[in-house]
């Protein structure tokens, strides 16, 4: 009899834990079509699976979730460093259309349960048949909306969607220590610039050492050197959390497919943290595989705004 009670308590406990971790997702603008119903169902299943896995300290149970192999691998890799759970029990958001009849569900608030407990917004991408095909951390909602508002026509709007998609995926690649994705993202001849602060000590007229302005030296790396550095950083850190703010998108005046993206990057990891201006020159010649030709980082504190690297600083020869 006693064993029976224990069993009942155990089952009840498990049910309560499940109920507490349940998020009900409503897509306010879903049209009721089979594919959009599938998107809603998969979004909810995935978020709830993440909630349960986070609460139990386990990996995500992919049973019943229609997910691509690629997405499953990426989420599993992300889970290694960034375990998250949704903070809402009832969530109403929108379903957005992506190029290629794909879908996106944004603005799913999650808390990343690692040492930092960072609030993030999850972005879920779905294929044309409603299968989950990518998961990443989105940029701040207001900023995203503003950048998309600036879309001038459908083409520009789509491009912006792709750029933000790319940027969000790019930043999440650091979270999941995805060297392969980063390696693919940089063109073979990519120019990597990293700013290093120099402490300028000049001798004053009285012969005393005086602390002058701190200057930033720009160091050039090639792709191999940069990837090697990154590999070491990934090895050293249990978690890496990268966030992007103040994103500006500029299309090149002559080369429509070239975009310059300026943003403020905050890097937090187990061993190190910094804030800096990041510039990316992205080439959308192959829209399915955009390439980064230039990545430049400059420390925020010691770089005046007029010295921030931007698209206009480069002559593009194609």
């Amino acid at each position: 009899m006693g064993r029976f009670y224990i069993a009942i308590l155990f089952v009840l406990g498990a049910l309560m834990a499940t109920a507490q971790n349940r998020t009900q997702i409503t897509l306010r603008n879903a049209d009721g079509s089979a594919v959009q119903n599938q998107v809603q169902k998969n979004a909810q299943l995935f978020v709830n699976a993440a909630n349960v896995a986070s609460a139990r300290g386990k990996t995500i149970d992919w049973d019943n979730i229609d997910v691509t192999k690629n997405a499953r691998e990426r989420v599993n890799a992300l889970w290694e460093t960034s375990v998250f759970r949704c903070t809402e029990t009832r969530l109403t958001t929108s379903i957005l259309r992506l190029p290629g009849n794909r879908f996106q569900v944004r603005q799913i608030p999650v808390v990343v349960v690692n040492e930092d407990r960072v609030d993030q917004e999850l972005v879920l991408n779905f294929s044309a048949v409603g299968a989950l095909e990518d998961v990443y951390f989105g940029i701040e909602r207001h900023r995203y909306t503003n950048l998309m508002s600036e879309g001038r026509d459908l083409r520009d709007f789509r491009r912006r969607q792709m750029i933000l998609d790319f940027i969000e995926n790019f930043r999440t690649a650091y979270n999941r220590k995805d060297l392969d994705m980063l390696e693919m993202t940089f063109s073979e001849n990519a120019l990597i610039i990293v700013g290093r602060v120099l402490q300028e000590t000049e001798r004053g007229f009285d012969g005393m050492a005086s602390l002058g302005d701190r200057q930033v030296e720009l160091i050039r790396f090639n792709k191999q050197q940069y990837m090697e550095n990154l590999r070491r950083v990934f090895r050293r850190n249990a978690f890496i959390n990268v966030t992007f703010d103040d994103i500006e998108i500029v299309q090149h005046g002559h080369h429509d497919e070239i975009y310059g993206v300026n943003l403020k990057q905050t890097w937090r990891s187990s061993t190190y943290g910094d804030e800096g201006y990041l510039f990316l020159m992205i080439d959308f010649e192959d829209e399915d595989h955009p390439l980064i030709h230039v990545r430049a980082w400059q420390p925020e504190k010691d770089t005046p705004m007029e010295e921030v690297i931007e698209l206009g600083d480069f002559d593009i020869v194609k």
């Binding site: 379903i95 957005l96 995203y144 998309m148 508002s149 001038r152 026509d153 459908l154």
Partner: peptide, 23 residues
């Protein structure tokens, strides 16, 4: 139609659409 399509998507995002309405 393309403008209307874009407006619909922006509305979903809660983004401003008046410039598109104008164009």
């Amino acid at each position: 139609r393309e403008y209307f399509e874009m407006m619909a998507m922006k509305e979903m995002m809660g983004a401003s659409t008046l410039a598109d309405v104008y164009f």
